[in-house]
Design a binder for these strands. Structure first.
Lengths: 157, 157
DNA sequence: GTCATTTCTTGATTTACATCAATGCATAGC
DNA sequence: GCTATGCATTGATGTAAATCAAGAAATGAC
């Protein structure tokens, strides 16, 4: 488990890499994302303080996700093997599954506005720290659509 | 860890239940799903042989998912506490995370046709066993949309 | 400071999919 | 057997969000 500094913009892992690294964020902000065949970027996860960021690819298979730093970030790096040996943090693992479950349900049942409202409620601190286009990418909508949703919501107040 | 038989149509768990049960499918087919505020059903997971089906809700918080049997099914039931004590199957847990990761990426980047093609490639045996409307529900599209996709694909051949 | 690049917004248009409605086909119950 | 219920398909219409395009505003480089 090695502590390292990552500069804003630095890429830790690329899609296709064979990597079994796990990043635990101490401070700063990471993100993991894919780029699809049409060249569109989709953010899979924001990794703020205390989050664990990793691709779930099996050992020796190519990763699906890019991981980079949105802010200057301090992380602890471990290999999956190390983490498995020490006995992984089950609570964290289950919380992660819970996050993913919520995300899937949200993606299947919510429209743009509902997704945005859910996001600002669940991650109130993230929205201040990233450009809106990244929020849109996380929500699975376009920046234009997000702009209109936000506009509509501010009208109402 | 108790082995029980479940009849087709039987409901094992309802949304809102406080339950920490985990179902490991020995034979047959379970499904977990939610019903949103608009009354629409969204299938979260199909659980065929050897799959683990459970809600990831924390202990003593209400579940989000319904779980029922699509076929007559034999399952092993454990509580989360039991499973944690015995040391859970980490490989299974990671595979599950991988499945969820793929699902999220698919939901964000694929249209109806791509989702369907991905589904029949990934779960070739499921499609024979469930009504198409459940496949549609899993894919996050309507039965009508699925019907049109399938129609279009069969034209091409 | 200026200039360049990226981000955000606004409007017009298009498109994929949902919704609504009707009909055909099964399967199950009696 | 017949009737009822659920499932699948097809067509017509509606709609949320994508796409395309152009400016405005913010950010960063020098």
């Amino acid at each position: 488990m090695k502590k390292i500094n990552v500069n804003k913009g630095e890429i830790l892992q690329r899609k296709g890499d064979i990597s079994s690294k796990i990043y635990i964020v101490e401070s700063g902000l990471l993100r993991s994302y894919t780029i699809d065949e049409k060249g569109k970027e989709h953010i899979y996860l924001f990794g703020p303080e205390n989050w664990l960021v990793a691709d779930n690819c099996e050992s020796n298979t190519p990763c699906q996700l890019f991981i980079d730093a949105i802010e200057d970030t301090i992380i602890n790096v471990a290999t999956k093997e190390e983490l498995l040996k020490e006995g992984p943090d089950l609570t964290a693992l289950l919380r992660r599954l819970d996050t993913m479950q919520n995300r899937i349900i949200m993606l299947m049942s919510s429209n743009a506005k509902e997704r945005y409202l859910h996001f600002i409620k669940t991650y109130p601190n993230i929205i201040q720290r990233v450009p809106l286009k990244m929020v849109a990418s996380y929500l699975g909508i376009t920046p234009e659509a997000l702009s209109r949703v936000r506009n509509e919501l501010s009208q109402k107040k």
